[in-house]
Design a protein around this nucleic acid. Structure first.
Length: 338
DNA sequence: CAAACGTGGCA
DNA sequence: TTGCCAAGTTT
């Protein structure tokens, strides 16, 4: 691991921020001001999600709910509808809980430090540091995947970024480098760097504005960074989804309030061990495949009758079209039309 | 701490 | 087709 002198640190800050001022993505909609609400919404949406995916969601969300008070007072169903298809739906529920906490418990007064911001549901070490630095000027590093990748290469940090304990190693390494005058811009510049020159795949460090500071590139070992152990493969699961139609309505089932897609409506889903267990009229030759982070669902659609239970309901098209449905359910609905 | 938690893009 | 990646947090 490399250590930088105070002179190197100052050169790095200047080089980075000069580049950011010239070529940073200043037009991103969450960078038009430093409103903590706008920043928080963007940061939550951007968790594990790419900028291009977030952009249309963010614009629609801010149009519908422009202030933290609007979000606090909105029906949860509206928030989930705005989040439909974005995934990791607990983010949406927690975001509204956070808004309600700020409005109801803090009377609209935002926590202004990273430590205090972490009381908000869904706001962890990264997001709190991002909001604190961008909106309130706190000098803290926002250690996200970009920061891991960028600084593991610049400083040749060998800690495994898949391990939680590595977070402190990076935090401590980056903290003295954060620009005390522009901490928010510093953090966002690192993110821009990580998504342009210092990418995960096919990095272009040769043309990077901070090439001179890149120890891994200098030593020809950039490919080795960041150090990251592999994730395990998704578990394969076989499901039978039931299509039950009655008077132009379709039978939906509400998922349990914990676990995967909790609280969302789907066709009744039954896990099966093999396709011999399929009963009813099979609707497709091929199954619908849907992959989650840790599961791979292979779903066979069948047409059959099913008894009503307390978590099942026949819904008209107008009813289910106004619900927030998970993408896997949209796939099933689309498959029905084929 | 390891595992859970969505989805889309790309090599 | 498969694996990996993308502005993480919660339990």
């Amino acid at each position: 691991m490399e250590f930088w002198s105070e002179e190197t640190i100052e050169n790095f800050r200047r080089t980075l921020l000069d580049w950011y001022d010239r070529e940073g993505r200043a037009t991103l909609p969450w960078r038009v001001d430093h409103d903590p609400y706008r920043v928080m919404v963007s940061e939550i949406m951007l968790q594990q999600t790419q900028v291009d995916t977030v952009l249309p969601y963010y614009e629609r969300f801010m149009q519908a709910l422009p202030t933290v008070q609007d979000l606090a007072r909105a029906p949860e169903a509206q928030v989930l509808k705005l989040w439909e298809g974005l995934g990791y739906y607990s983010r949406a529920r927690n975001l509204q809980k956070a808004a309600r906490f700020v409005v109801d418990d803090l009377h609209g007064h935002w926590p202004e430090s990273a430590d205090d911001l972490q009381v908000l549901p869904g706001v962890g070490p990264y997001t709190s540091a991002a909001i604190a630095s961008i909106s309130f000027g706190e000098v803290v590093p926002a250690v996200d995947g970009n920061a891991y990748r960028v600084f593991s290469r610049l400083l040749k940090i060998d800690a495994d970024i898949a391990q939680p304990k590595s977070r402190k190693i990076f935090y401590d390494a980056i903290l003295p480098i954060v620009d005390p005058d522009r901490p928010g811009d510093f953090n966002q510049a690192i993110m821009d760097l990580g998504s342009s020159y210092m990418t995960a795949k096919n990095p272009n460090s040769a043309d990077s504005p901070v090439r001179a500071f890149n120890a891994a590139y200098r030593d020809g070992v950039e490919i080795a960074y960041p150090v990251k152990t592999k994730k395990q493969r998704p578990v394969k699961q076989l499901y039978m989804a039931t299509v039950s139609e009655k008077d132009g309505r379709l039978l939906f089932e509400k998922r349990p309030d914990t676990g995967l897609l909790s609280g969302f409506w789907t066709f009744p889903l039954e896990e099966i061990q093999n396709i011999e267990q399929i009963v009813g009229e099979q609707l497709h030759i091929k199954p619908i495949v849907h992959v989650f982070t840790h599961r791979r669902w292979e779903i066979w659609l069948v047409k059959r009758d099913l008894p009503l239970t307390d978590n099942r309901q026949y819904l008209t098209p107008d009813q289910w079209q106004h619900l927030s449905l998970p993408t896997v359910q949209h796939k099933l609905l689309n498959a029905l039309e084929e």
